[in-house]
Design a protein around this nucleic acid. Structure first.
Length: 497
RNA sequence: GGCGCAUUCGUCUAGUGGUUAGGACGCAGGAUUCUCAUUCCUGAAACAGGGGUUCAAUUCCCCUAUGCGCUACCA
């Protein structure tokens, strides 16, 4: 039978890093077993779901390259079916009407009040003590017909236990006495999460549910529903969570944009690199190797390699260098400098377009120059953004000079103020402005003037590129070209800063 | 409070009833270089604590601690 898995985010925010990994694992699993990867937007919480958030999630998915194999399912479209199923359970006597008036939500921290209530109840709480559980059916019908509001709750059996074999966490058991009669339908007729998920998973023919570990205990409730509905539950695989440094929960409110997928896209990460990084968070292949293409991941992915312990996504909000996980940054740099140049070019192109540095010639008359330039400078870049910042001088006359570079490479050697324009004169006399002749010219010039080659090179580096980091200076001269090199060597702008 | 889950270098992780506990990122030092980066070499860095079981436990069991999750008419 064809395996069918789904990624089911609720659109109450952007695509979270943990959700992205859940999507990745679902995707890898589906591809590995030749199954279908589906996407369902769980937008049943009308108050919190937004179209903007749905769009953001879809954007994130598109960026990561996870296209669903079938049409996207919006859970809210199925509300009528969910309601019908709840009613069915009611008529079958597997659920009951609860006429208890709805509690007014507290203004404060909902999580906290839930927890407080649970604490107060303690272990003695009888989960079967709802007075309406055994209400006479005709009485129930009468009150409903009279217009009294009611919620529909599942009638959890008095004794027994649910159990399932989780593909990651192993055998899970839970006594019925610990599970409250869960609400299926709110008193306003709105279907709730557990009902909606189970109904949709059945309807979509989901065979394997791969989701976050925060649903591990919910699963027991869902198993109960599968049983009430007479459907076979899918196989479950729960994933460890991704936590913030210190082992705390990673949240938008506390950690901000660091948790959003779009942040990484906008910061110049390559989807292939980020996917690779994500894959290694909570899952590990057999080999001692870090870099895997998507195809490789698909080939070797298996649920057996998933860990049970939560992983920490390491970053330091107070450091500009460590704003996100070191390993993610390293991996991105690794991809930038080692991937096929042809695959990198489109990313550079869109970055240059974004920064208004793009020229159509780069793909036409100057394509070989462009490719060479990208290939030469990519080696020391960490993100795609670097092409438009550190690499700006290669594509534009309008670039800034790094002040420490000016101090260290220019002003410390005042003689360069005379020498560098003189070097420009030598360049002007050259016919063949290519690598070896340039090198000969620079070296003999330095020797003749009694200057250190390095000093001349670095002074020129600052004038030509604005920064003190870059490829071999000979290559820089060659890339910037004769005309622009001469112009920049003669410019006094940097000296006057 | 109850129930559940987890615990190997700072982080991601490998691994085993007997190992010099391995790799990666980061960090430190060195080599190379016109800068920086790369590359290469070297180094510091871990089995949460306590009891068992055993000839032998990081590995198996129990307890404790810590963290996380769930405990909603949220998802």
């Amino acid at each position: 039978m064809t395996k069918r898995v789904r990624f089911a985010p609720s659109p109450t925010g952007y695509l979270h890093i943990g959700s992205a990994r859940t999507a990745l694992f679902n995707y890898l699993y589906a591809r590995n077993v030749g199954g279908k990867f589906l996407l369902r937007i769980e937008d049943t919480d009308l108050a919190r779901s937004t179209d903007e958030s749905t769009k953001s999630i879809l954007d994130g998915m598109a960026w990561l390259g996870f296209q669903p194999d079938e049409e996207i399912v919006f859970q809210s479209n199925n509300a009528d079916k969910h309601r019908a199923i709840a009613i069915r359970l009611l008529t079958e006597g597997k659920a009951y009407r609860d006429f208890t008036p709805k509690e007014q939500g507290t203004d404060g921290n909902i999580k906290q009040s839930i927890s407080d209530r649970a604490k107060k109840q303690g272990a003695e709480k009888d989960m079967r003590d709802n007075p309406f559980r055994e209400l006479d059916r005709s009485e129930s019908e009468r009150r409903a017909a009279a217009g009294e509001a009611f919620a529909i709750r599942l009638k959890v059996p008095v004794s027994g236990k649910t159990s399932f074999e989780d593909a990651v966490y192993g055998l899970q058991e839970r006594d019925y006495s610990e599970i409250e009669d869960l609400v299926l339908l709110r008193s306003d007729g709105h279907p709730l999460y557990n009902l909606a998920v189970v109904c949709d998973d059945i309807e979509m023919g989901i065979t394997d549910v791969i989701r976050g570990q925060d649903h591990l205990t919910n699963t027991h409730k869902q198993i109960l529903l599968y049983e009430a509905l007479g459907a076979a539950p899918p196989r479950f695989a729960h994933l460890p969570l991704i936590l913030a440094p210190g082992g705390k929960k990673l949240s938008k409110r506390i950690h901000g944009e660091i948790v959003s997928m779009t942040t990484y896209r906008d910061a110049g990460f390559l989807p292939e690199a980020f996917r690779n990084f994500l894959a290694l968070l909570g899952w590990s292949p057999k080999a001692e190797k870090e870099l895997y293409s998507l195809d490789e991941l698909v080939g070797i992915f298996s649920l057996e390699g998933i860990h049970r312990n939560n992983a920490i996504f390491n970053f330091d909000a107070n450091s500009s260098k460590r704003w996100t996980d070191d390993k993610a940054i390293w991996m991105n740099a690794e991809y930038i400098r080692t991937m096929e140049l042809d695959s990198l070019l489109p990313y550079v192109k869109s970055e240059l377009k974004l920064s208004k540095l793009w020229r159509e010639e780069y793909e036409e008359s100057e394509s070989s120059w462009f490719e060479k330039a990208v290939d030469s400078i990519r080696e020391r870049f960490f993100t795609i953004k670097d092409f438009s910042s550190q690499g700006r001088a290669y594509f534009s006359e309008d670039f800034d000079f790094d002040s420490t570079s000016i101090e260290k490479n220019l002003k410390k050697f005042p003689e360069l103020r005379e020498l560098l324009p003189e070097l420009a004169d030598r360049f002007e006399a050259m016919d063949d402005f290519s690598h070896d002749p340039i090198e000969n010219t620079v070296r003999s010039f330095a020797e003749e003037k009694g200057a250190k080659v390095g000093v001349v090179m670095n002074g020129a580096r600052t004038l030509l590129s604005g920064v003190s980091v870059g490829p071999s200076m000979i290559v820089v001269f060659e890339l910037i070209g004769k005309e622009r090199s001469i112009m920049r060597l003669r410019s006094q702008v940097a000296w006057n800063i």
